[in-house]
């Protein structure tokens, strides 16, 4: 997925642990871990708002768009 979660970087800057952030945001550590490791499929606005509030940052500090490399064009001689 071309959306990269940079939560670990912001957490290091803010010197906050996963447990502490989970408690302050009000979600489970398991869910925060899913978000931190980039396994999440979606994030609720309410969760994003709480994380930004507790870390004092903007959504753009946590989420980054990195375009996926385009697939090389196929050689027409390879056939269908």
């Amino acid at each position: 997925m071309p959306i990269i979660v940079r939560l670990d970087r912001v957490m290091v800057e803010q010197k906050i642990t996963l447990t502490e952030l989970a408690e302050r945001v009000g979600i489970t550590m398991a869910n925060l871990s899913i978000l931190k490791t980039g396994k999440a499929r979606a994030i609720r606005f309410s969760t994003l708002e709480a994380i930004c509030r507790e870390l004092g940052c903007q959504p753009g500090d946590i989420l980054e768009y990195v375009p996926e490399p385009a697939e090389p064009p196929r050689d027409p001689r390879e056939g269908v």
Partner: peptide
Amino acid sequence: QEDQDLTV
């Protein structure tokens, strides 16, 4: 269900 589980 999987989408729901992976929504934080």
